[in-house]
């Protein structure tokens, strides 16, 4: 199971990076979303998968899956939503202001350095 998850993580991350390398803002948004999936799964996998039931304490003590990565990921997912919204609005605003969503044309002033 872990091996399969690791392959999925690698592919998610690779695809995300590929999209980040692209000059269009929308694809950057997609890329960051894929990378968050990859990181979340990475966290989950690092805590071992399926070593018991869901992390709920029942009346009978039973082994449960590591709850710590789950707590970390839960907040990460919600923050991810905030990030996605922010990048989207940023992209939209940049397009409004500059008339382009091409990162190659959004490089700041030439004499800045």
């Amino acid at each position: 199971m872990e091996l399969a998850a690791i392959i999925a993580i690698g592919v998610l991350f690779g695809s995300g990076i590929y999209l980040l390398l692209k000059p269009r803002l929308l694809r950057v948004v997609f890329g960051s979303a894929l990378i968050s999936h990859a990181v979340n799964l990475l966290l989950l996998t690092s805590g071992r998968l399926k070593r018991g039931g869901a992390p709920l304490v029942g009346d009978v003590p039973a082994p449960v899956t590591d709850p710590l990565p789950q707590a970390l990921i839960l907040t990460a997912i919600v923050i991810g939503l905030g990030t996605t919204a922010l990048i989207l609005v940023l992209a939209y605003r940049i397009y409004q202001e500059k008339g382009t969503d091409d990162l190659r044309q959004l490089r700041g002033l030439e004499d800045e350095s």
């Binding site: 919600v78 905030g82 989207l88 609005v89 939209y92």
Partner: peptide, 15 residues
């Protein structure tokens, strides 16, 4: 969370 979602959706949807 409700506040953030409401604000964001409204802002993005109406621009």
């Amino acid at each position: 969370v409700v506040g953030v979602a409401k604000w964001t959706i409204l802002t993005v949807a109406t621009g």
